[in-house]
């Protein structure tokens, strides 16, 4: 097993075709899932005609800003955790210097990057918040009652790419090359899993908020 992971063909595989597959599945799958839901909603005559752009934007704004909605204020520790988690989870991979360099080597394009130290802290934040969310799953009774193995699975899917990335950067535990291969594989698993698991809340968030925001606007009420 250990030799298998060290094998350069696996590195080439993870570095080349698997990345392509992962991104194609991620983008294609996401478009497919969004399209599927919108088409289903079209069949239901009470959804699309009531979507209100202004209400949608207001609803999204109140839930994308920390402490802007009532529940964000009520559950302030969760709010801090979840915002830290999601900001770091989304922006670290996109703005990481090493990822940027990989893209630059392939296509010669580059964009703004985070300082290495900050990116390191952000990765660590993802790892720590994941562990807190994991603990919350069985320490908070109301969460424990609705926890399934799939919840642990999606938590693990988002946890391991960051953990292996962090360990690879600091060259801990396993040799760098092995760790980086694991990191790439976990990252690819995450990208593929997004459209087909409840990680899809990444894009469904905007659709469900749009529906509920419009509904509450119709009732002359607020949903935040």
């Amino acid at each position: 097993m250990y030799d298998f992971i060290k094998d350069p063909t696996l590195y080439n595989l993870a570095r080349g075709p698997l990345v392509w597959i992962a991104f194609i599945v991620f983008i294609g799958g996401s478009i497919y899932k969004i399209r599927e839901l919108v088409l289903l909603a079209k069949g239901e005559r009470v959804v699309l005609p009531f979507i209100d752009l202004k209400a949608t934007l207001r609803s999204l704004l109140h839930w994308l800003i920390p402490f802007a909605s009532r529940n964000w204020r009520n559950r302030w520790p969760i709010t801090i955790l979840t915002f830290l988690f999601h900001i770091c989870l989304v922006f670290t991979p996109i703005l990481l210097l090493s990822h940027n360099i990989l893209v630059y080597e392939s296509w010669g394009i580059t964009w703004w990057t985070l300082p290495e130290g900050l990116a390191d802290i952000m990765t660590f934040v993802v790892v720590i918040t994941c562990i807190i969310f994991f603990l919350r799953r069985f320490l908070a009774p109301e969460v424990k009652f609705v926890t399934f193995s799939s919840d642990y699975l999606i938590l693990a899917i988002s946890f391991f790419p960051f953990l292996t990335g962090f360990l690879a950067y600091h060259q801990l535990l396993l040799p760098y090359k092995t760790m980086v291969i694991l990191h790439m594989l976990f990252g690819e698993i995450m990208l593929i899993a997004i459209p087909f698991t409840r990680l899809g809340h990444m894009f469904y968030f905007f659709l469900t908020r749009s529906f509920m925001g419009s509904q509450f606007a119709l009732w002359h009420s607020r949903d935040w």
Binding site: W63, R70, T208, R209
Partner: peptide
């Protein structure tokens, strides 16, 4: 629905 972050 007013407390759900996704407005489900």
């Amino acid at each position: 629905s007013m407390y759900c972050p996704y407005g489900l």
